[in-house]
Design a protein around this nucleic acid. Structure first.
Lengths: 239, 239
DNA sequence: CGAGGTCTTGAAGACGATCAACAAACGTGG
DNA sequence: CCACGTTTGTTGATCGTCTTCAAGACCTCG
């Protein structure tokens, strides 16, 4: 059931059978959520953390003028608000961007894990560090790169992250996200997001239709994005 | 010696005497570093993590065209590359922006802590989660706010973070950072960073001279920045 | 006293935002 | 099955923020 999470962690280190069992046991419940549903609200103090089993979600903040910024995209296997376990109060919301299946893990269960399973604790900690590495990379993109490079970069990243959990094959994956949402994540207007997609198409780097994104030229896209996968920590090693 | 770290952690939770002792014992050595010195290099695999005892440091990435982005600023009490303990390979560098005093904590010592001190482990984990919360907030600023709001926001943040470790008094603190470095952190050119500082001065929100920054109008600065301190998690509660 | 870093100013131009309008696709209910 | 409203994608035109380039002032320090 929590296969995507296990798959994601096993990409970075070895998990014992006992640890997998502990993770499975930590899940109190699962449920389906429709698109556009708030999984976690800003200023709330959740008593459980949410794990994405299927679908896409986004971490967002709404500003006073109504603008929305999406500071993270999350896919199957991502523990979207694991940080809520220790941060307590959410400083942003989490919304489903597509229909999702999610699992709920009570903070009590996470507390037990930290008391009894040091290695598994380090892997959960690692999970939040991977998120942070992605934030850092997005910061660099947002701070210094133009719209085309930013969008190319995000597409490269999603391809690799989805591949880890078996949702991308041969640089092709389902992307049930609107251009407006893409723009909110990339810090550009919807109109400009659209023009940027078109530019990527015109350069024969990607196709994107019917929620299917295909990377036509991986090397070219990497070059435009100045993409370097180090930050995704795709190496398996003892942690 | 590691008082700033303890002070920062104690702001968020209670530390036992034993835990403080364990932290002190984890420090293998301390040393001074001059300004502009690389504490950690990109692509390196450090075997120890660095704790800032004094001074300012920045997390940076250099792009192919020579542009530098600073994705984080760190002050006394910050465990700048604690994440290196689990991420293994650094995807960015860390440079001193002023003369610094730093402490080195071997990864082995951190590993021991995770095996034997669950609560202290959670606090170290929390420390990296606080960094991540700051990244998220910077992302929102960079993605949606204009130059003036971004700079105002950073100043508000630094004031509170420095206050936690006793380095800001009555909204006044030493800021040994150039406008160019500020620009690199805020995603704006040096020229525009300068004009933005001038605009903040013209609005009587701050003064900034001789490396001393004074906030003249905290509420006004907060309003311009649309600043909300929730993400800094300044509440002390059991974690 | 000269050299280099930092701060400052002006002018030109680029990138992306905004506004407005329309086309296409979709889902829902009549 | 079609009518309808809504969402998403697309295009054009204008405007503004910020970048870039260039140069000069100021400061510190060897």
């Amino acid at each position: 059931m929590i296969d995507p999470l296990i798959r994601r962690l096993e990409r970075r280190d070895v998990l014992s059978d006992e640890e997998k069992e502990v993770l499975r046991a930590a899940v109190a419940s699962t449920r389906d959520a429709g698109p556009g549903e708030d999984l976690v609200r800003e200023d709330s103090r959740p008593r459980e953390s949410t794990l994405i089993l299927e679908g896409f979600t986004g971490r967002y903040t709404i500003l006073k003028d109504g603008k929305r910024h999406i500071s993270a995209l999350h896919v199957a296997g991502d523990f979207v608000d694991l940080h809520g376990f220790l941060l307590k109060t959410m400083d942003h919301g989490i919304v489903t961007l597509s229909p999702c299946r999610i699992a709920c893990v009570p903070h009590d269960a996470l507390g037990d894990i930290t008391e009894r399973y040091p290695h598994l604790t380090r892997l959960l900690w690692l999970s939040t560090l991977l998120d942070a590495a992605i934030y850092r990379t997005w910061l660099v993109c947002l701070g210094q790169k133009d719209a085309l490079a930013r969008m190319a970069h995000l597409i490269c990243e999603l391809a690799l992250r989805l591949e880890v959990v078996g949702l991308a094959k041969r640089r092709r994956f389902r992307l049930p996200i609107t251009q407006a949402e893409f723009g909110d994540a990339l810090g550009m207007s919807t109109v400009h997001a659209n023009r940027t997609v078109q530019e990527l198409r015109a350069r024969s780097l990607i196709t994107w239709q019917d929620q299917q994104l295909t990377i036509l030229d991986w090397d070219g896209l990497n070059r435009v994005a100045e993409f370097n996968a180090t930050y995704l920590n795709l190496e398996r090693e003892p942690r």
